[in-house]
Structures are given as C-alpha cells and as structure tokens.
C-alpha cells in the first residue's frame, strides 16, 4: 500500500528554554529536525523530551526561544495544528463515549472536509470496538484508537509518544509499518521511545537530551561512530557517562 504524498515540514527549535519553578526542563534547545525523516527523542526520565513535544504541540509555552515549523514561527495561533497528528503516551478518552463518537468529535472539531485515512481506524474497528463505550476497552485496544486518531487526518507532522506501549507484537508491527509508510510518503515523524529495538528499526535521526540540553543530534549511525560502540544502547550509555562530546 502506498500513501498519498504530503509536503513534509522541517521543524526548528531555536534557543528554547522552559523552567517549571526551580526545575529547568529545557535549557537552550537548538536543533533542526529534518523534513520527511523519522527523528527519535531519547534521554533519561526528566530529560525534557515530553516538554519539548508539548512545546511543539502548543500545550506548553516556552519561556524563551521559538519554534519554526515549515518556515513559519509559531505565534500562539492554533491553525498550524491542522497538519499535526499526536499520539499521547497515556490516552484517556471520555468514559461514556464510544470510539466512534470520539472520532466523530475530533472530526467535528477540526471541521475536516478533506479525505481521511481510515486504515488504522478500520483495524481498530474490527470486532466492533468502535461502538463500545471507551471505558470497557482494554489498554491495548485504547492504544489502537489512539494511533488511529493520530493518523486519521493525514498529518504532515506526526508526534508519537511511546507509540507501541501496551500493544501486542502483531499490533506493534502494523503500527511500525504504518509509520514507515507515511514517512515514505513525505511526512515528518517525531517519536519518543524507550525501546532500543524500536528506535533502531524506525529512527533515522536521533536527538539525545539530558537535563534539558542536547547531548547529541544527528544520524543514528553517527552516534555509534562517535562513541565507538556498536550497539545503540551502549552508545547512549557511553554518551551519558562521558558527558557532552
């Protein structure tokens, strides 16, 4: 199956800073994520991955710096999110709505007229899950709904937070295939994951964050070369212990 082409945007973070009280979440993040590539955000817990993602989504407002998306600086408006697909890490949908109603609601909310991508939705809807209230669905099924929603509106920029968490291996495989296909069709993908295998399978570029600062940003292969390690896991551990290189 091939995806209809989309115009992939490049994402630039310029000198992004964010503090929560005394905690510095982002400490001058300055990177450019390549258009039409899959970039993985990695780093230990509390490194600032979520904050970075939320800044991009408009959920968190940076104290300083700016984000440039496809050449335009984000200014607090919300129209840019029309081209965004987001898969949150721990999705919770309104308990008493069915999957179909949740999807309808988002469709309504976007006033989406263009063709939608129902592939994952059909996959989720197998066995009638669409018409059951969300509260009776299992965690895995809910994660499928979460994925279906993220891909539904043919986003040019996909933000996936631990996308395969809670999915069985088969479902996980289907999702990863889907990610690759939209990338091939030109979408930019930002994902965060703790699963090394998943990163190696999907990511082309890697952004390594520690305490709100970038330790490494570049191709996956480049990291191994720099640290002299052959495995990604060891390469990352080396980066963490040796400090900025």
């Amino acid at each position: 199956m091939t995806e209809p082409a989309v115009a992939a945007p490049a994402v630039e973070f310029r000198a992004l800073r964010k503090r929560f009280g005394r905690l510095t979440a982002l400490d001058g993040v300055d990177i450019r994520l390549g258009a039409g590539r899959v970039t993985a955000l990695v780093g230990p817990n509390g490194a600032g991955k979520s904050t970075l993602i939320k800044c991009l989504l408009g959920l968190v407002r940076p104290d300083e710096g700016s984000i440039v998306l496809a050449g335009a600086t984000l200014d607090g408006g919300f129209e840019y999110r029309r081209g965004l697909g987001y898969m949150p890490q721990a999705p919770r949908f309104p308990d008493n709505l069915t999957g179909r109603e949740v999807v309808d609601m988002l469709r309504d909310l976007r006033g989406h007229a263009a063709a939608t991508d129902g592939e994952l939705l059909d996959w989720f809807g197998e066995s009638g899950a669409l018409d059951r209230p969300v509260r009776v669905l299992s965690g895995g099924t809910r994660q499928k709904l979460n994925a279906a929603i993220a891909f539904l509106f043919r986003p040019a920029l996909l933000i996936l937070d631990e996308p395969t968490a809670g999915l069985d291996p088969v479902a996980s495989g289907i999702l990863k295939d889907k990610i690759r296909r939209v990338r091939d069709a030109g979408a930019t993908v930002v994902l965060s994951s703790h699963l090394i295998a998943e990163l190696e399978e999907l990511a082309e570029d890697l952004v390594f964050l520690v305490e709100g600062k970038i330790r490494y940003a570049g191709p996956l292969a480049g990291l191994k070369a720099r640290t002299g390690e052959t495995g990604l896991e060891r390469a990352m551990a080396a980066l963490l212990t040796r400090g900025g290189a």
Partner: peptide, 16 residues
C-alpha cells in the same frame, strides 16, 4: 481531573 488527558488531546487539535 478525569478529563485531563483527553483535554490535552483536544488541545493538540486546531482549536483555541
């Protein structure tokens, strides 16, 4: 509180 996560999902949509 219970709608917190879904609210975040809604906030990630193109709405004010």
């Amino acid at each position: 509180y219970s709608a917190r996560e879904f609210t975040e999902l809604l906030l990630a949509q193109p709405v004010g």
